[in-house]
Design a protein around this nucleic acid. Structure first.
Lengths: 248, 248
DNA sequence: TCGCTTCTTTGACAAGTCTCAATGCACTCG
DNA sequence: CGAGTGCATTGAGACTTGTCAAAGAAGCGA
């Protein structure tokens, strides 16, 4: 139930910080959210056209499972984790979102998972009703929304496949491989990930210890390197792929 | 439990069987596929309006991963499994589809998983282009399509959560519980599932032996009964829920 | 019906992962 | 600078699941 209210310097979206009255402000759509659905224009040059920027601090809750789903978000900077907590206290991270990706699109009225900022995060935020309005009049946006959901579904299915029958080492390898594929802009093989070991473990469905051991094993094989806590260097991409695919 | 107007062989949709020229036949949409997207009208009274019925025999492949995604399908009868095969020969079942559910909606041009008939199956089949056409002109249908994808995504996330940290016994319990929730029409607690143990195991990310042992354990605890191979009786729903949630 | 095949169930053991505990490492705050 | 804190890593043993093997049911065709 934590609303992301205003700690100093956190909510800089003038429009959005004024509360939940999104439906009363179609203006936000006209000059901002139109761009929200466009995968192609996430970057600074367009950001001034998009009024609804919201920041979150490390580990801050963006929304909780069960909250009314007033907003959808598009990542500008940082990383967000979607997770569910279970009765036994364990946490399953369902997905991570990186810049340019969209999360928080719910068709039922409630969020089905909890979203938290992994590190410091900048997002574009758009009221649900605003999107609905845009979607109704614009098949193009409707199409994009569909594409995003579809992409998320594909990711979830890959996740299922991984959890279904990869060993700890294979999972860790697959995980880094996926990150590497995604962030091709970075300097070769260098992953600068804000995730803790616990985050990784919770995504992979492993304990932190097992994750660590798998990592150490990969280091021993000179396939990756971990020069600092939050940095991974892939030294042998082919080797990593081989492991991810089960060729020991 | 078989019916449907239909025939020898398998493809009785005259419109659809005439090849991939769906785009040239908007007529199919006008009198058939319009209803395809409607969750509410899957039953007999509407079926005569929907020309494109297709049947599949037990274990028949409906489409394979990588095939061009010409069609989407809606389940009328039976069950379908969506799966992926891995390098090591193991199979992960990503989802099952039961009557009234829809599968095969791909936004990329290719199917991302393989679909097979678990038992004998009856589906409604609709060409992709046909759906696209309908969607363009009709925000309502667009909405339904979105809802279906969203439902599939939610299911995938639950699946991830299950594989992420439930024990074998918990998974089996959750599985039957989910089935029970879904088929509330059946007589109390009685599940008539066409799935083999291998199918269940591949869905749960377990081996067939482990699945079997978990099942036997549940039988021993008098929580379920398995009077025949393809039939499960839930004798203690509360107990099943307790196990699924981790309360031993 | 019998015999054959396929699927299911059970057992014994091996392998992988989790749990608990201790240590190491990096960063922050006095 | 040193102590304190949180996170990461490693080790030892318990427990769960996978593997291999065999026996028991169920379905099928001759």
């Amino acid at each position: 139930m934590q609303r992301t209210a205003a700690e100093p310097g956190r909510d800089l979206g003038a429009l959005s910080s004024s509360g939940e009255s999104a439906s009363a402000r179609p203006a936000a759509c006209e000059h901002g959210c139109r761009f929200f659905m466009d995968e192609a224009c996430a970057h600074k040059s367009d950001m001034d056209k998009v009024g609804v920027t919201v920041k979150f601090a490390r580990n801050e809750t963006i929304y909780s499972k069960g909250d009314e789903a007033h907003y959808s978000y598009k990542m500008i900077e940082g990383a967000v984790r979607l997770s569910r907590i279970f009765a036994d206290g364990r946490r399953q991270i369902v997905n991570f979102y990186l810049p340019d990706e969209t999360f928080g699109i719910e068709l039922s009225g409630e969020y089905t998972s909890t979203a938290e900022a992994v590190g410091d995060v900048v997002t574009l935020r758009c009221p649900r009703l605003c999107i609905a309005q845009l979607t109704a009049g614009n098949p193009d946006i409707s199409q994009k929304r569909l594409a995003m959901l579809s992409k998320n579904l594909a990711a979830a299915e890959r996740h299922v496949a991984m959890l279904g029958h990869q060993s700890a080492k294979e999972r860790v390898a697959s995980f880094f491989l996926a990150l590497e594929m995604q962030r091709r802009t970075e300097s070769e093989g260098m992953l600068d990930l804000p995730l803790s070991r616990q985050d990784i473990a919770d995504y992979l469905g492993l304990t932190i210890e097992t994750t660590c051991r798998a990592l150490s094993e990969l280091k021993r094989q000179k396939i990756i390197d971990a020069p600092s806590r939050r940095r991974i260097v892939i030294r042998d991409l082919a080797g990593l792929q081989a492991i991810a695919e089960g060729d020991v």
